[in-house]
């Protein structure tokens, strides 16, 4: 990977304090709010605390939005014609993808940590070390397809529609991933649709940390498959996108 490229990409993201603050603060705040709402309706005999159930969901939400929002920024440089300039350098489609995805991943590291801290400090959630790792670093890694998906949307979208596509995309993925409302409390077809989304498996991966998920290996492999397919599309698009504006 080209370090000069990665360094500038990262520096550029850090120059957008508004987006960063939203990405880092929003999922943590949302976690606390949802925990309060769900607590009042939680069955008293339930073995597991709502604060713990919401933890992987909101950590996953943080990973999902940071990956997608950061990825979609590529639309700006495409519209400006910078991507055409990049195509005149030896930067390959793969190198381009790696740089962009790496930045998306780096930015996805803090949000789940903030959610985990909120859970530990304000909701008294206690997990073992492996559990904490799952709801933070593992879920960040599992978020790779969302960074790539954001990139892909930014590569196809324009100034007018990218924002809408990203917002609708994030909401649809959140609903079928069981992020805002646990899928158990929705009709079963939501779960069936969820199987077809990467967000379902992202939350499933995180839930392994609170011992509620499926096989984390299966979730990881499905997310990897999503990454490979989306990455292929991004590289193809980078090579063929020479559209004049």
């Amino acid at each position: 990977m080209n370090l000069g490229y990665l360094a500038l990409e990262l520096r550029r993201v850090l120059r957008e304090p508004g987006t960063l603050l939203f990405i880092i603060g929003f999922p943590g705040a949302f976690y606390l709010l949802e925990a309060v709402i769900f607590e009042s309706q939680w069955p008293a005999r339930s073995a597991i605390d709502p604060g713990a159930v919401l933890l992987p969901a909101m950590a996953g939400w943080g990973v999902l939005i940071s990956g997608m929002l950061v990825g979609a920024r590529v639309m700006n440089e495409r519209e400006a014609g910078w991507q055409r300039q990049l195509r005149l350098t030896p930067l390959t489609g793969g190198g381009y993808l790696l740089g962009k995805a790496a930045v998306g991943l780096l930015v996805s590291i803090p949000p789940p940590i903030v959610v985990a801290l909120a859970a530990a400090l304000f909701r008294d959630v206690r997990l073992d070390l492996g559990g904490w790792l799952f709801v933070t670093l593992v879920i960040t890694l599992g978020g790779t397809p969302f960074a790539v998906l954001g990139l892909l949307i930014g590569q196809f979208g324009n100034k007018k529609n990218t924002q809408q596509i990203i917002i609708i995309g994030m909401l649809v993925l959140a609903i079928f991933g069981g992020i805002f409302i646990p899928l158990d409390s929705l009709p079963p077809w939501f779960t069936y649709v969820g199987y077809a989304t990467p967000s379902y498996w992202l939350i499933d991966l995180g839930r392994a940390g609170i011992e509620m998920g499926g096989d984390p290996m299966r979730a990881g492999l499905i997310l990897l498959a999503w990454t490979v397919v989306l990455a292929g599309a991004v590289i193809w698009r980078y090579r063929h996108d020479s559209a004049r504006n």
């Binding site: 500038l8 550029r12 400006a80 014609g81 300039q85």
Partner: peptide, 13 residues
């Protein structure tokens, strides 16, 4: 080396 008509620059760099 090429200088294209629309090879604009990055606003945030």
């Amino acid at each position: 080396g090429a200088m294209l008509q629309e090879g604009a620059l990055l606003d945030d760099a």
